[in-house]
Design a protein around this nucleic acid. Structure first.
Lengths: 208, 208
DNA sequence: CGTCGCATCAACCGATCGACTGATGCCCAC
DNA sequence: GTGGGCATCAGTCGATCGGTTGATGCGACG
């Protein structure tokens, strides 16, 4: 079979070297490395590799944006997300954007190798932890809801200790509006007060 | 000069391989690898390397505990913390426990190499981001204060949306006591309400 | 032995919050 | 063109919160 060609994108040099080393040792052909999203995009467009191993958290152009743009370009490169975090927002955003696979960095090396192979073949691979998270997301449609931009804006201010009145002033709306937003936020997050809402938001990666 | 002997401890196989690869390529002698704190301790005791490259966040025995035990054993091995996170609590705990150096994983490879060399020589090396954090900590003694165990307990319940009265019942104290604790928490975190306190606690790694 | 941090409690008060009900305008998708 | 999500607003009400001041007992540290 033809050798699988790979581009690795991660802003951590150490991690990048590690992934590259592991993949090369397994006989894959690593044709390019990127330290941020923009480089990754350019490399993939130029080299058209079979697989892009991608970290989500990168300075500048983030991983999710990279995936979206690749999909927009109808790239045939499979995207294997390899990241440290498994917060709801990250996972869901990546999968929705069109990631082919999602692996956590604490995955054993053989799993990584197998995931790359599967990604090249167009198969979807998910870390057990990620799969569990997605499954639980499907099970409970209630707390699944995403916050609207305005709601996130309100919640961000709440997390800073801003009072409803001050939030209203800050956003140029009435206090009643702020309260309504907060009520919706509480519903969506399944909590009953602002302190808990902030905590849930952090847990889910909405804030932080 | 004699070759520098190193043990690498990280629960992420990919990262571990990366660090090991980089260090070996630079001519260091990696004499052992560990995937958790207990293994790391055992290896350091047995092999007495010059440097232990240590991830803080590991399952079971965490990095900070490893450092503390090594210091208790009067080990002469230098500890270079190499981790993804730079939250206040992590950094401070590691330094206080006796870490020789503290580097973030997004450090360039040459910096890592140099840091290992410095650590072996007993010098303290800090990531710029970490150094900044420490400096700002010294500058502002106010928000430096750590929360007492009881205060953390209260704050944890607050983050769950628990009401003061319910917290009081849960901890078998009066509501007045809870309020007093909360007042101290607000002072220490430099905030004025519970929502902001929760947010700050997450930012500092106290919660989460 | 004095001091300091921690944990505990009291009582008061004004400000704020969150629940509830009900309503309007907008824009997009089906 | 009808429904649905989003953003906007109103008004009321009881519950709660947060700030304040003051006080006690305890252990640690010097």
């Amino acid at each position: 079979m033809t050798q699988i060609r790979i581009v690795v994108a991660d802003d951590h040099p150490v991690v990048r070297d590690g992934v590259v080393g592991v993949l090369r040792a397994q006989g894959f052909e690593v044709v390019g490395q990127a330290g941020d999203g923009a480089q990754a995009l350019a490399l993939v467009e130029e080299l058209e590799p079979d697989v892009l191993v991608l970290d989500l958290r990168m300075p500048g152009t983030g991983g999710v944006e990279v995936i979206e743009r690749l999909r927009a370009l109808e790239s045939r490169t499979g995207v294997l997300v390899l990241t440290t975090f498994d917060t709801d927002s990250d996972v869901v955003a990546a999968i929705e954007a069109g990631a082919t696979g999602y692996l956590l960095k604490d995955a054993p090396t053989p799993d990584l190798v197998e995931a790359v192979r599967a990604t090249a073949a167009g198969e979807t691979v998910l870390s057990p932890a990620v799969a569990t998270r997605l499954a639980s997301r499907l099970r409970s449609p209630g707390p699944t809801a995403q916050l609207s931009p305005r709601e996130r804006e309100v919640l961000t201010l709440v997390a800073r200790g801003t009072t409803n009145r001050a939030i209203a002033a800050s956003l140029f709306v009435s206090e009643a509006t702020v309260k309504t937003h907060l009520g919706h936020i509480f519903d969506k997050l399944g909590v009953t007060d602002r302190a808990a809402a902030v905590a849930r938001a952090y847990d889910r990666g909405i804030l932080g």
